[in-house]
Amino acid sequence: MRVGFEPYFGGYWTGRSRLLWLAVVGLFLLTAVSAFWWYSSKLTGKPPSRYPAELVGMDMSQLQRHVRRLEARVQKLRERQDRLFPRTASILVDTAENRIYLYQGSRLVEQGRCSTGTGLELTDTQGNRTWTFDTPRGYFRVVSKVTDPVWYRPDWAFIEEGEPIPKNPESRAVADVLGDYALGFGDGYFIHGTLYTRLLGSSVTHGCIRVDDDVLKRIYDAARPGTPIWIY
C-alpha cells in the first residue's frame, strides 16, 4: 500500500529517497529553531553596552579631553586618600606572621618578629571564670608609655601557675619581665619586651605583643600617646 507523497513521487517514496526527504525536513526544522533561539536571544532586551553611555557618543578629541580630566580627578582622589594614612608614626601588627612594622608616613622604618596570643583557654578551678588568650584585632591607639615597666599579675597568671590569688595588690607586682619599655593600648594590653626571645615569631602570649628589645626601642621612641596601632 502506498501512502504519503505517493501522488507526487509515484513509486519512489520509499527507501533511500524517503530518508533523504526526512533528513531535509529535519535539518530545516533544526536550523529554523536554532536560528530563532539565537536571534531572539540577541534581540531580547537592550544589547549590553561595553562602556558607560556617556562615552558612546564622544569623538576622538572629546574622549582625549575626558580622559585627561578623569586622570586628573583620579590622581587628586588618590592623593586625598593617601593623605588619610598618618604622616607620623604608626604601628602595624600582623598576627598571622607574628611580625610588627613601624611606619613613618607611608615609609616602613622598622620591622621585626613579635609574639601574639596563644588562643588558649583557661578556666579557674571552680569553673566560674574563663579567659581566652587572644590578641585583639582592629584599630587601637597608644594610651601609655612606660619605661622599666612592672607587671601587675592578673588573676589568671596565679591560676595558670597554680598559686593562690593574693589579697595584697603589691604582691602582684613583678619587675623585669616586660623588658625595658611598654606601650599600653588599652584593656591591659601592652606592646612590651620579653625574656623569652627564642619564642619570638610564635603565638605564645596571653594577648600582649612581645617584641625584641632592639625593635621595641625604636618603636617606643617613635610612638606618642595617640599613635595608631592596627592589629590584623
Binding site: W38, Y39, K42, L43, P47, S49, R50, Y51, P52, L55, V56, G57, M58, D59, M60, L63, Q64, H66, V67, L70, E71, R73, V74, L77
Partner: peptide, 30 residues
C-alpha cells in the same frame, strides 16, 4: 543580527576604542 547589536557611535578606530577603555577604567576607579 550582528548589525542589530552594533553600538551606536562606536567606530572601529583602535585609538578611539583604546581611549574609551581607558576612560571607562578611570570612571570605575573614580
Amino acid at each position: 543580527c550582528g548589525r542589530a547589536v552594533d553600538r551606536p557611535g562606536e567606530d572601529s578606530s583602535s585609538d578611539t576604542e583604546r581611549l574609551r577603555i581607558r576612560a571607562a577604567g578611570l570612571m570605575r576607579l573614580e
